Amino acid sequence: MFKTPQIVLFSSDVERAATFYKSAGFSELFRTPTEGTPIHIDLELDGYRIGVASEESTRNDHEMDPVVAGQRAAVILWTDDTSMAYEHLQRLGAKPAKAPSPWLGRLLIAWLEDPDGHLIQVVQPTQPSEA
């Protein structure tokens, strides 16, 4: 019945948001329009797909009222080195929210915010076969 799930993040600047995620290793799969200012861009990393949609387009084209502030979603990125990934994402423009810390005695996690304020959780298993 369902297939290929995806999360869409709302952004005030779709190009800026997509550039941030491409810098983090995502590849662009789709954009519309193909020329000019995009209103939607889809990206993918290791089979994990996210979209970035214009707040304005979501209101005007779909008659929706997207929530555009606050900690409304989290992009989870698994890694082999949470501390290195945390620092790397800050260099790309992410704002630190919580430094790496142990969780559940088997994970090391850190929290950041992307340029639109969406949470990013960076997770490293400290024991084999967690991801």
Rank of each mutant, 00 (worst) to 15 (best):
E87I: 08
K22S: 05
R31T: 05
W78P: 11
V8D: 01
A69K: 15
M84F: 08
A18T: 06
R59Q: 08
E87Q: 15
Q71F: 02
S54W: 10
Q121P: 01
P96Q: 04
V67T: 15
L9H: 06
P115F: 09
H88K: 15
L45V: 09
H88P: 00
F30I: 05
F10I: 08
S83D: 14
L89T: 06
P115E: 04
Q6Y: 01
R16P: 03
A69S: 13
K98E: 10
A97R: 15
S129P: 00
F30M: 14
G51Y: 07
A24H: 11
G51N: 07
P33G: 05
P66V: 14
S83I: 14
D80E: 01
T4F: 07
T58Q: 10
P38Q: 09
P125V: 04
E28R: 03
Y21V: 01
T58M: 09
N60L: 04
T4A: 06
S23H: 07
S27G: 02
L119F: 04
S11H: 03
G93D: 06
G51A: 09
L92K: 10
Y21A: 01
E35W: 10
L112W: 14
Q124C: 05
I7G: 06
A97P: 01
S57W: 15
G36Q: 03
D80K: 14
S54E: 07
T19L: 00
Y48F: 12
I39A: 06
P125K: 12
V123P: 02
A18M: 04
E28N: 00
E56Q: 13
T19F: 00
G51S: 06
L108I: 13
S101C: 00
G36A: 02
E55K: 14
I50C: 03
V68G: 09
R72V: 15
L89Q: 11
P38Y: 12
S129A: 02
L45T: 13
G47I: 08
Y86M: 07
R49D: 00
A94F: 12
M1N: 06
H40E: 01
L77F: 10
P38N: 09
D13C: 02
Y48V: 12
Y86L: 09
A53T: 15
